[in-house]
């Protein structure tokens, strides 16, 4: 009950008392009063689970359960308001010292509760959101699947944190950088758009054009060998990759060495001419996380593309 959490102590006590006394009418009245009272003054923001979340004041004790959200909060200059992050968050380095509250699928509820956060930022995950709500901890869910989500989430988080101006500036900066990198990449290329295959997993799963990574590759003027209707991360028939004969393959370093062991893959242009792109894990983070460092990730992709496919 979001209102209950936001409401001041007295109102909360009254609500509790009314419920305990079993006076339902009184409870409903108190509830209505609380809603009316908060809705008037507070900042109401709708999250991606379609819940209207009321913020009476900008949150000061925040837990993030996704690296991209941690990075978003920090990029908005609110790193100091974080009290815990998920276990994958590793940027900026100051979040490394914070308590680690598990991850979306295995959040450490007890740790989160003990930190008394006034906001938990997460992506859509019904189970943990419900559990947090039961425990009276406000949470805010954000989709982080696409490139467009980055700017949208920065704006939303900026609104919630009361730093909307900063969010607008950050968004402009990111948009400028991304536009520049994309334009430079397209301008520097002599031949036609290279066909690319981004391998997410060697079994083989690809990043389709509908995924965040696919978005970046498209903006760099490449042609994804996977069509959009296959979904964000389709499991491909390996034969398909051979048939499409990509010019460049993005792949994990460990898998890159064994590419020619796969039946027929030795004849793929990217494998034959070693036009392969692999990234160190810290650079890889910027590529796979739809967050404020997207321009860094895109630059890394562009640099490798330029190196192997001039």
């Amino acid at each position: 009950m979001v209102c209950g959490i936001r409401a001041n102590g007295m109102r909360r006590a009254a609500l509790w008392f009314a419920l305990r006394a079993g006076r339902r009418v009184a409870a409903v009245l108190a509830l209505a009063a609380c809603y009316a009272g908060v809705a008037g003054a507070a900042n109401v923001v709708r999250d991606d689970l379609d819940r209207d979340i009321h913020f009476e004041h900008a949150p000061q004790r925040i837990v993030t359960l996704l690296p991209s959200l941690t990075e978003t909060v920090c990029a908005l200059g609110a790193c100091g308001r974080l009290v815990a992050t998920d276990r994958y968050s590793n940027w900026p380095s100051q979040v490394l010292a914070l308590p680690k509250a598990g991850d979306l699928d295995g959040a450490e509820i007890e740790l989160i509760v003990s930190l008394k956060p006034d906001l938990v930022l997460l992506s859509r995950s019904e189970r943990i959101t419900e559990r947090l709500a039961e425990l009276g901890i406000p949470s805010f869910a954000l989709n982080t699947d696409h490139y467009a989500d980055i700017a949208r989430n920065i704006t939303t988080v900026g609104n919630i944190l009361g730093v909307a101006d900063r969010a607008a500036i950050l968004n402009d900066t990111i948009a400028d950088e991304v536009r520049t990198i994309g334009a430079q990449a397209r301008a520097a290329r002599h031949g036609p758009a290279p066909a690319v295959y981004f391998e997410v997993d060697p079994t083989p799963y690809a990043a389709g054009p509908g995924s965040f990574i696919g978005d970046l590759l498209t903006q760099l003027g490449t042609r994804n060998i996977v069509s959009a209707d296959l979904g964000a991360f389709p499991k491909l028939n390996p034969e398909y990759v051979v048939r499409e004969n990509p010019d460049v393959i993005f792949i994990a370093d460990a898998d890159a060495q064994h590419l020619s062991d796969r039946p027929g893959w030795g004849d793929i242009r990217a494998v034959r001419e070693r036009r392969l792109c692999s990234f160190e894990s810290d650079v890889g983070d910027t590529i796979v996380r739809p967050g404020p460092r997207v321009a860094d990730g895109m630059r890394a992709l562009a640099e490798c593309l330029h190196r192997v496919d001039p």
């Binding site: 296959l230 979904g231 389709p234 499991k235 491909l236 028939n237 034969e239 398909y240």
Partner: peptide, 8 residues
């Protein structure tokens, strides 16, 4: 390999 080709 047939049902949802080229995915699998």
């Amino acid at each position: 390999r047939w049902v949802i080709h080229p995915a699998e």
